[in-house]
Each structure stands twice: as C-alpha cells, then as structure tokens.
Design a protein around this nucleic acid. Structure first.
Lengths: 125, 125
DNA sequence: TTCCGTAGTTCGTAAGTTACGAACTATAGA
DNA sequence: TCTATAGTTCGTAACTTACGAACTACGGAA
C-alpha cells in the first residue's frame, strides 16, 4: 500500500482543481466535506449521490481529490479521516473555491426545486 | 456540416464549465478571448500555448467551449467569430468565471516568473 | 460558372482515462 | 490468532481525446 500523497500547496494547480471538481461525485464529496466542521470517513459518502457508489470507485475519487490538493486524508485506526484544505487553497487561489461552491449550491437549489415541482405534479395529477 | 450548438444559459452546468476549463488549451483560449474586447477567429489561437495546435484539435476545443456555454461562435464569411458569454454566465453563476480567470492569472504570473529565473540562470552560468 | 485558396469540420483510429468487481492490505477487537 | 471493517490495488471493458486525412463552406478571381 503506497503512502498517501499530498502535494505541497505551491504545487497545486488550477487545472488539477478544475479537473477534480468537474466530476459530479467529487464535487458532491467536496461540498459535503466543506459543509462539515471536522473530518469524515470515505464510507460516509457511499450515498453522496442518488445511486450507491462502489467502494473501489469511491477510493479513486478520494485519491483524485487528495492528489489535486483539495483534501487531506489521514488514517485513524481502520478508517480514514478526510478534511478540506480550504485555508491553504484560499491563500493560493483567493476566492476560487468559495465561488465554485457557491455555483454548486445554485445548481443544487435548482435541482431540488425541479424535483419538488415533479412531486407536486404527481400528487396533483 | 451540423449547425453550431449553443446551449441556453439555463442549461449551462457547473460540471460543463469546470470540465471545459480544466483543459489548459481551452483555459488559455478562454482567457485570451476574455481579455479581448471583440471577437476572434479560431485560427488566431494556433499558438495560444508553447507548441502549435493542429486545426482539427483546435476545432474540437472550440466546440467544447461552445457546448459548455462559455463562448458564442458565428460564421462571418469564411471564418468564425468567437466571443465569451461572460455577461450571461455572470448572471447564472455570479463570480465564478472571474475567480477562475483570476486564479488562471495567478498561475500564469508564477510561470512567467519561473521562466525569467531560468533565463537569468542561463545567462549567469 | 468554374476554379482556387482559406477557414473550419468531420471521421477513423490510436492513445489515454475512468469505472467497477475481485482480490488484496491494514487495523481493531474478541 | 481469528474475524470484521475500512479502504486500496489490479485487470479489463467502456469511454474520451488528439490528430492526420479527407471533407464542407464560403469569398474572390478569371
């Protein structure tokens, strides 16, 4: 098992960040992590989107976020504790992550509204 | 030749934007287009990065930017005029594009500084 | 009109990337 | 030492991307 790789903040690239967050599963994981105070395990995200994510896939997503410099992971017993590197990232690219998260929430809001409309239609029809 | 496809601004997704701008060639094209006042042709970007980009590849990059909703393209005689959709995008995801461009310029600044250091070393050595 | 040149698109394919199940490693606790 | 839990790695099939060759679209000259 190769050791966890965390790039130094100076080696974090815009390209890497955008690529990592361009995936909807990773964006959901990051948004959820950012919304929490502390750290969270990987397996807490098995249902972060509508369908269940296989754990090998989830593991790859965490690796992608980690190697892009978005999160920091450390082993704690049998599980893994993950947290965002938001302070460092804010220093490196001021305003970037907050504006992406804001856009993420704009979209999440639209989705939940359109879901509600569908539910309303169903119960009306 | 299929007609140019421009998504309605409401159909523009964060995922699409991040994916489009996660490519360094497309980010460079977009940044360059955003820095200009008016529109520019595709072929103006053959050398937007250090090496020359084949025109078929360039064409695909423009399509990607267009279909992500980042630019608007229209035929003008034999060439194509491209411009950003920055005002619409600003309405849809306030602050998103400016903060990505800001981060892009942070990195571009770092690169030019490290290139200068190399040049200085060379002429000193 | 026909021919030619320029600008850009499409297609085929080779190379690269991603997703996921099966098999594995690491750790805690009985 | 055995078992259970959490996560990783590997192999492979599916998907995506890059680029050359061949094409389309248009303008201008003859």
């Amino acid at each position: 098992m190769r050791p966890l790789l965390h790039p130094s903040i100076d080696d974090v690239t815009l390209e890497g960040i955008l690529h990592a967050l361009a995936d909807p599963v990773r964006a959901a994981i990051y948004a959820e992590l950012a919304a929490r105070d502390g750290a969270a395990t990987c397996s807490a995200f098995v249902n972060v989107i509508d369908r269940e994510i296989p754990k090998s896939t989830l593991s790859q997503h965490f690796r992608a976020l980690r190697e892009a410099g978005l999160i920091r992971s450390e082993r704690a017993g049998v599980e893994m504790r993950n947290q965002t590197r938001c302070k460092e990232l804010e220093q490196r690219f001021p305003g970037l992550i907050p504006s992406i998260m804001k856009a993420y929430l704009v979209e999440a809001g639209e989705k939940s509204r359109s879901a509600k409309r569908k539910t309303a239609k169903k119960s009306a029809g």
